[in-house]
Design a protein around this nucleic acid. Structure first.
Length: 668
DNA sequence: GAAAAGCGAATTTTT
DNA sequence: TTCGCTTTTC
């Protein structure tokens, strides 16, 4: 086996023979990262500073140096990011890149737990629950526990799920979380503690694992024995973590354990772009990294290759109001460029018309639609624009917001496969049974409690249906029996069988069924890529397709489309021209956040992320005279983040609506 | 007693 | 457009 270690004594890498042109592709700071020696390394990478490029070359360099690709672990925020990076590594070092381990913390958790889970008593056939499954379980348990009868004011199921998730991701007790973040529910603390226990028991009993469990149990696994921790740590001799500012305490702890045998850990991130604290992420991780990993070498990447200087000036100005940072200031060699523009519109629709019109003009001028994006704080803020774009025939794709995997019809269909894979999966049984005419919560609970223990659920259900004289149940039982007979078949075949059964129910339940059927067809398409049901289901949970069937990539692959996205989903991406909507104080920052300093800080960072997506043109739009129920007032002021920004950094336009709905702009 | 239908309210961001 | 609660129906 070849040596792994890049020793300080080895020949200077820049002079060694190499097929890769590092010097032509990277600047000095980036080269320093790529050729850094072993040990902890923290890269503070400003927006657009070529962070991905640097990571790609670092991985390529490690491989070229003789590190076996399978000993490299690349942790990213989404699985897609990992795939894209490894593809680029492939261009440099060829097929070897395929052996690099890559993915999210959750997907790594999934894989390791399937393989080594027995060590902590976890059966490898567990089913991964997404957030809405978790909420279903909580709803079930809450009703069973009778919380509603005991108390007047009861938190909603998604609030409860949020509390539970926060305890896990911030490594705090439920009591602390409630006291700090949900003080108004303090009187329910005993009930909630009880509910949390019940939730954990329920999951254990039915072989269910939620997103948080993938991390918790991975952490547990790493603690289960010294040999195992060492084995796993040695399996990943080089660990690279992207988007480190959006990891949480639990993930940091996992990393320490994974790196324990070698300390070869490299984290890349930007504290100014930390925008996932609602998920338990904290930029404290990136600030404290040098303390957690003594001897850390810190390298900053400050040169921006994306945006023009006028855009960076505005972004720098906004972010320097932040409280704590590594104090970097982005600069670009593209000094020239259009000023960012603050655009005021009379109302929401006027804002939409301006944006649609401007996009139209940009296209006429030769900008590709692919190179334009409209970003919003929350996905519903784009609804009006979607209609406007539709009217004008401008094709777009929407990212973020309503997720395909969480739509009722997709969950319904997949539930049928989930019980085939894991007959203990009580949430899915419940979901399926409730679809049947004449079966409600009570009957369903009764059936579920028995069916999970049956060796041949299909057979058992057939008999039950006869006893109950339920034709609906009989039909389902027949379907189930056939599914049970063909468990070894391809996921696509199982899915078509389940669809045949489910489609009549879908048509009966939803008036808009044609649209929903297209979604199901899309899932069917995806299923054809898989041989194993378990892998198919896990992948759908961990890496959900975010496009509905109507807009699936395969059909429109060569069509140019504009991107409509939430800022969160735009992370890491870039466009020539970016429109930001609803830059109205009370919407951005949202009026929910203005009472808490750290939430306000997060909104500021979010704004920063949004602005730094733009390469050449940046439009900041806001409508006026908007009534906001939350604030109980009419909003008309631009975002407070622009309050102290010098007028020399920003042009101002006012949209004037004519009767013909043409826009006119004039300087203010 | 349980299921289905009906009505009013609220609505961030996502692995 | 879904969620939670109430009323009506079986």
């Amino acid at each position: 086996m070849k040596p792994y270690i890049l020793s300080p004594n080895s020949e200077s890498p820049l002079h060694s023979t190499s097929c890769i042109d590092y010097k032509g592709a990277l600047n000095a700071a980036q080269l320093e990262v790529v050729f850094a020696f072993d040990g902890p390394l923290l890269v503070i990478a400003g927006a657009g500073s070529g962070k991905t490029q640097t990571l790609v070359y670092r991985v390529a360099r490690l491989i070229e140096q003789g590190v076996h690709p399978s000993h490299i672990l690349l942790l990213t925020f989404t699985r897609r990011a990992a795939q894209e990076m490894l593809q680029r590594v492939g261009l440099l070092v060829g097929g070897r890149s395929e052996q690099v381990r890559g993915g999210t913390f959750h997907s790594v958790g999934n894989i390791l737990l399937r393989r080594y889970g027995q060590a902590i008593g976890l059966d490898s056939s567990f089913t991964i629950m997404d957030r809405s499954d978790a909420e279903d379980v909580i709803h079930l348990l809450r009703t069973e526990y009778g919380l509603h009868e005991k108390k007047r004011r009861v938190p909603r199921k998604n609030t409860i799920a949020e509390m539970f998730s926060k305890t896990v991701n911030t490594l705090r007790t439920l009591d602390d979380v409630i006291l700090d973040n949900y003080a108004h529910f303090v009187e329910l603390i005993d009930d909630l503690r009880h509910l949390q226990k019940a939730y954990q028991n329920y999951k254990a009993k039915h072989l269910l694992v939620d997103f948080d469990d993938l991390l918790v149990k991975l952490d547990e696994l790493l603690d289960s024995g010294r040999e195992l921790q060492e084995e796993l740590s040695k399996a990943f001799r080089y660990i690279l973590v992207d988007e480190y500012q959006d990891t949480n305490f639990l993930q940091a702890r996992i990393l320490q354990k994974l790196a324990s045998a070698h300390n070869n850990i490299m984290a890349v991130g930007d504290e100014a772009q930390s925008i996932y604290s609602f998920r338990g992420a904290t930029f404290r991780n990136i600030m404290d990294f040098p303390n957690q990993f003594p001897g850390t070498h810190v390298i900053k990447l400050e040169e921006n290759y994306r945006s023009t200087q006028p855009i960076l000036n505005l972004a720098n100005e906004v972010i320097c109001g932040a409280e704590e940072s590594y104090g970097k200031r982005l600069f670009s060699r593209r000094i020239e460029g259009a000023m960012p523009v603050l655009v005021r519109a009379e109302d929401e629709n006027s804002q939409s018309r301006f944006v649609a019109q401007r996009i139209f003009e940009l296209r006429e001028e030769g900008t590709a639609l692919n190179d334009i994006a409209v970003l919003v704080r929350s996905s519903y803020q784009a609804f009006d624009l979607e209609i406007e774009l539709g009217k004008r025939g401008l094709p777009f794709i929407k990212r973020g917001g309503m997720r395909l995997m969480e739509t009722a019809h997709v969950k319904d269909l997949l539930a049928h496969l989930r019980v085939v894979e894991n007959p203990h999966d009580a949430v899915s049984w419940n979901r399926i049974l409730m679809l049947i005419e004449g079966i409600g919560p009570k009957k369903s609970a009764q059936i579920v409690s028995q069916v999970v223990h049956e060796a041949t659920p299909g057979r058992w259900l057939v008999e039950l249906a006869q006893r109950m004289r339920s034709t609906g149940l009989a039909e389902f039982a027949g379907c189930m029996e056939r599914l049970n007979e063909m468990t070894a078949s391809a996921p696509a075949d199982l899915l078509s069988l389940a669809s045949t059964y489910y489609l009549p129910i879908l048509k009966q339940r939803y008036d808009d069924y044609p649209k929903r059927i297209r979604d199901l067809d899309h899932i069917q398409m995806i299923s054809m890529r898989y041989d194993l049901l378990q892998v198919f289901l896990s992948d759908l949970a961990l890496d959900p397709p975010n496009e509905s069937g109507a807009e699936s990539e395969d059909e429109l692959v060569d069509n140019e489309r504009l991107v409509l996205s939430t800022i969160h989903s735009a992370k890491g991406l870039e466009w020539s021209c970016v429109f930001l909507l609803w830059l109205l104080d009370g919407k951005f920052p949202s009026s929910y956040s203005i009472f808490s300093n750290h939430e306000l800080e997060e909104e500021r960072r979010l704004f920063y992320v949004a602005m730094t997506r733009a390469k050449h043109l940046l439009y900041l739009n806001y409508p006026i005279n908007i009534y906001d129920r939350q604030a109980g007032a009419v909003l008309s002021r631009p975002s407070r983040f622009l309050d102290n920004v010098s007028t020399t950094l920003l042009d101002s336009w006012v949209v004037v609506d004519g009767i013909t709905s043409e826009h006119g702009n004039s300087d203010v």
